[in-house]
């Protein structure tokens, strides 16, 4: 049976979700996204550039919504109201598409989530018919509350957005994973392939990243590495790792039939 990531009733083969920001140009964006194998891509919603030249290519031309599942985000929003307005615009822009990434930030330096505002926004958005995937702190009580409100996935940070610091608190992530009934995705903090593998080995259902790929010297190569890391981590999780044994070594080769028996 195929191992699918199911979000809001829809199955996805790829457990790697990628952002589309910070690339050199749309061509690099497209090549990196394709190398990552991601089916879900995040996008931001911004004011039209009033001086923009008509006929310039758009992101929607580069990554056609027919081929990818768009996940509009609320990056840059610091209040529940701004986040809600942004996602209503996104739904209008994407012809009624209602799968969204909610993030309400609390501080421009750390981009740490403002959880009271996040919870407030989530409540309104769920009532308004949105399928909410939510960026949040790695606090099992907050993620439980978001799940109870009807969010379709919880996405705790592993470390600060864009920091590349990796999985700083695997214990909290494990607490969240153990209790959650909705998919748990690590969103933010992954720096390199091993970080993604660790997240998946912990039992995360998926990983969302942007800077780890876009900020690499060779983003397309890193996108492929992340694809493999997420797959490897997932398979290792499903396989069930051997228990760690601190002080008792156990040889892998037969202990009998040695040429110099003890």
């Amino acid at each position: 049976m195929e191992d699918l990531l199911t979000i809001a009733g829809k199955g996805y083969r790829s457990r790697l979700l990628v952002g589309t920001g910070k690339y050199k140009d749309f061509d690099e964006t497209r090549r990196a996204v394709e190398a990552s194998g991601a089916e879900i891509v995040t996008v931001a919603i911004r004011r039209t550039n009033i001086g923009q030249e008509p006929g310039q290519p758009s992101l929607l031309d580069t990554l056609p919504p027919s081929k990818f599942t768009y996940l509009p985000n609320t990056a840059g929003c610091y209040t529940a109201d701004d986040a809600i307005r942004t996602l209503r615009l996104a739904r209008e822009l994407l012809d009624g598409h209602d799968l969204v990434k909610l993030e309400v930030l609390g501080d421009p330096q750390t981009l740490f989530p403002n959880m009271p505002e996040t919870l407030k926004a989530a409540q309104t958005l769920v009532k308004d018919g949105f399928k909410v995937m939510v960026y949040c702190s790695d606090d099992p009580i907050q993620t439980r509350q978001l799940e109870e409100m009807g969010c379709v996935a919880v996405m705790p940070l592993a470390s600060l957005i864009g920091s590349g610091m990796g999985i700083l608190n695997p214990w909290n992530l494990s607490l969240i994973i153990e209790k959650a009934q909705v998919p748990v995705l690590v969103d933010a903090g992954v720096g390199t392939a091993s970080d993604a593998a660790i997240a998946m080995e912990l039992g995360c259902d998926g990983v969302l990243m942007n800077t780890a790929i876009a900020g690499a010297k060779n983003p397309v190569l890193m996108a492929g590495a992340m694809k493999k890391a997420v797959e490897a981590g997932r398979e290792a999780f499903l396989a069930g790792r051997m228990p760690k044994k601190l002080y008792s070594a156990s040889p892998s080769s037969p202990t009998t039939g040695l040429i110099s028996p003890k």
Partner: peptide, 24 residues
């Protein structure tokens, strides 16, 4: 979109026009 033609602007209106751009 279905109401772009029928919606008349009035003085003092605050309009936002947005697009999708790259983001994480």
């Amino acid at each position: 979109k279905s109401r772009h033609v029928s919606t008349q602007l009035e003085a003092g209106d605050r309009l936002e026009i947005v697009v999708a751009v790259g983001g994480g």
